[in-house]
Simulated scan of single mutants.
Amino acid sequence: MRVLLVAGRLEPSGTAMYVANLVRGLRRLGQDVRLLYGGGVYGRMLAEEGYSVTQLDGLGREVYDLFVHRRQVKEAGRGWAQLVHIVSDYVLRRGSGVAQILGLKAVVSFHHIVERPIVLPRSVVRVIAVSETIRTHLVNAGRLPKERIRVVRSGVDIEQAERNCQSRRGEHELVVGFVGAVERRKGLEYLMKAFELLHQRGQRCHLLIAGQGEMLQEVRGWAKRSGLLEFVTLLPNFTSHWEVLAATDILVLPSLQEGYGQVVLEAMACGKVVVATAVGGVADMMEDGKTGMLVEMKSAESLAQALARLLGDAELRRKMGEAGKARVQKLFPANKMCEETVKIYE
């Protein structure tokens, strides 16, 4: 199958990880794949790895007249592509425009809880939800009929994880890491309060927040006001989530809302213990008390208690990290995701 993948901006995010895993995995399965995307480090990374990649900046914009770049779209897919895969609901309209220009059918993947009404273009013949939570939401909210949606859980490139994310060894300051959009829906206000509680109770550790978003200045201001600036690192610009995960001992995801929570799987694949709220697909990924800890939503106290327990017990961190890694390798390999995706293409 010759598939043209269409994406928006591929900056570090769960969707960007999904796209990279899909491109690599489909190629390993013998599929002929090209990527048309709207800019970002993950697209450039795939180009450097030798994959066929075309950057079309407008695909990364909310308001964009795709037909202005009709020639470039045709060059990317006309006479070659057999199917268009719109890899995120965020680019549904733009991706369906690509399919229309090329006269092809399309598949679309949903990664997010969608609050707005959805009108699927006629070119879209299959819908993929990356978690059962997303499919249930789409059906219950009356967005799409259940029979049109197939669940294909997003997976992890195990080889990439083992190659790029080594365990931290020797004496070092313990690091609690957050990777994702620095936005209110991620529960960062509760993480900040929990971090204060840890230090007030004598639990010294470092907080690493990697990502950009509406709360970045607020978080920076909090670190200064709380007197914890020396214990907080903000990393708004980074090129590899593997490097960030390698620098952490515990991944924390205190989200109020998630479509999936891909970074949880990536952390588990690295052997990192995870503390998270049971939102989106997270509850399906983790075994509470075995591969990590699920905490109460909007509760700084619950979060602080879970972090304190793990920070104070290296053996528990190791056991949970190993259990999480084994679970990802068994249930969430990217190869399985790609094999199920190919079946939908066919």
Rank of each mutant, 00 (worst) to 15 (best):
M1G: 13
V3W: 00
E11N: 05
P12Q: 02
P12T: 03
G14S: 02
L26F: 03
R28C: 03
R34W: 02
L35E: 04
L35G: 06
Y37E: 07
G38M: 07
G38K: 02
G40L: 02
G43W: 01
M45T: 10
E49Y: 06
L56H: 14
E62T: 14
V63S: 12
Y64C: 10
Y64N: 08
Y64S: 02
D65W: 04
D65H: 14
K74V: 09
E75T: 14
Q82M: 03
Q82I: 13
L83A: 03
V87D: 09
V87P: 08
D89M: 07
D89Q: 13
G97L: 02
A99N: 00
K105L: 11
V107T: 01
S109D: 04
F110T: 01
F110D: 01
H112R: 10
L120Y: 13
L120M: 02
S123F: 13
S123K: 03
I128Y: 03
T136N: 12
T136E: 12
L138P: 10
K146H: 15
R148T: 13
V156S: 04
V156G: 12
A161L: 00
R163N: 10
N164E: 12
C165D: 11
Q166V: 05
S167R: 14
V176A: 02
V176L: 03
F178I: 00
V179L: 04
A181N: 10
E183H: 00
E183I: 00
E183Y: 00
R185W: 01
L188P: 02
E189L: 10
Y190V: 06
L191M: 03
L191G: 00
Q200H: 14
L208C: 01
G211M: 00
G211P: 02
Q212H: 06
L216E: 06
A223Y: 04
R225A: 13
L229M: 11
V232L: 05
L234P: 11
P236H: 06
N237W: 06
E243K: 14
A247M: 07
I250L: 15
V252E: 08
V252Y: 04
S255I: 11
Q257E: 15
E258G: 07
Q262F: 15
A267W: 04
A267C: 13
A276V: 05
G280R: 08
G281W: 09
V282Y: 06
E287W: 08
E287K: 14
D288F: 08
K290N: 09
M293Y: 13
V295E: 01
V295L: 08
K298M: 12
K298A: 05
A300E: 04
Q305S: 15
A306R: 03
G312A: 04
G312L: 06
D313F: 10
L316H: 00
A323I: 01
A326G: 14
L331F: 14
V342A: 11
E346F: 13
E346S: 15
